[in-house]
Amino acid sequence: TLLGLWLVRGLAPTRPVLAGFATGAFAGGVAATVYGLHCPESTFVFVGLWYSLGIMACAGLGAVLGRIVLRW
């Protein structure tokens, strides 16, 4: 998430919270994909619940940090 925010900072976003949320969601999605390729657990409940919660946690963190880091 921090690397993504650093890259987005150079684009001078006009809505830092939304840009941080999108950056965090992207980072969480990439992390969930990489983890999912190596995790033997693949039940619907496990994937649907825990992967979604992990992605949303990263998106929330990105939104909070985006408000601070992406301000210009």
Rank of each mutant, 00 (worst) to 15 (best):
V34T: 06
Y51L: 13
I68E: 09
L3V: 07
G36I: 00
L18F: 04
P16Y: 05
T1K: 08
L5V: 01
T33G: 05
V8G: 06
G24N: 01
W50I: 13
V30W: 03
A19I: 11
L7H: 06
F44D: 10
I55Y: 00
G62F: 06
G29F: 05
A12I: 09
W6E: 10
I55M: 04
F21T: 06
L37R: 09
V30P: 03
A32V: 00
W50C: 15
S42A: 14
G66P: 10
G28Y: 03
A19G: 07
G20P: 09
G62D: 15
T43I: 13
A22G: 09
L18C: 08
A12T: 10
A12S: 13
G60R: 00
A19T: 14
I55S: 01
L65P: 06
R15S: 12
V69I: 09
L2S: 01
F46D: 15
A27C: 09
G24D: 02
V34M: 07
A25G: 03
V34G: 06
H38R: 05
A22M: 15
Y51V: 07
C39S: 10
F26M: 14
F26W: 05
T23N: 05
V69W: 14
M56R: 02
G66T: 08
L18Q: 15
L65H: 05
A57G: 12
L3A: 10
F46I: 06
V64S: 02
G20H: 07
F44H: 15
A57F: 06
L2Q: 01
F26D: 08
A22I: 14
G4T: 10
A59W: 02
S42K: 12
G48T: 14
A25V: 01
P13Y: 15
R15H: 13
V47T: 09
A12W: 10
A25Y: 00
V34Y: 01
A59G: 02
L49I: 13
C39M: 08
V64P: 01
W72R: 07
G66H: 11
L7Q: 04
G28K: 00
P16N: 04
L11N: 03
L3T: 08
M56D: 02
G66I: 12
Y35T: 08
L5Y: 05
P40N: 11
G54L: 14
V69D: 07
T43R: 12
L3S: 08
L3H: 02
S52T: 14
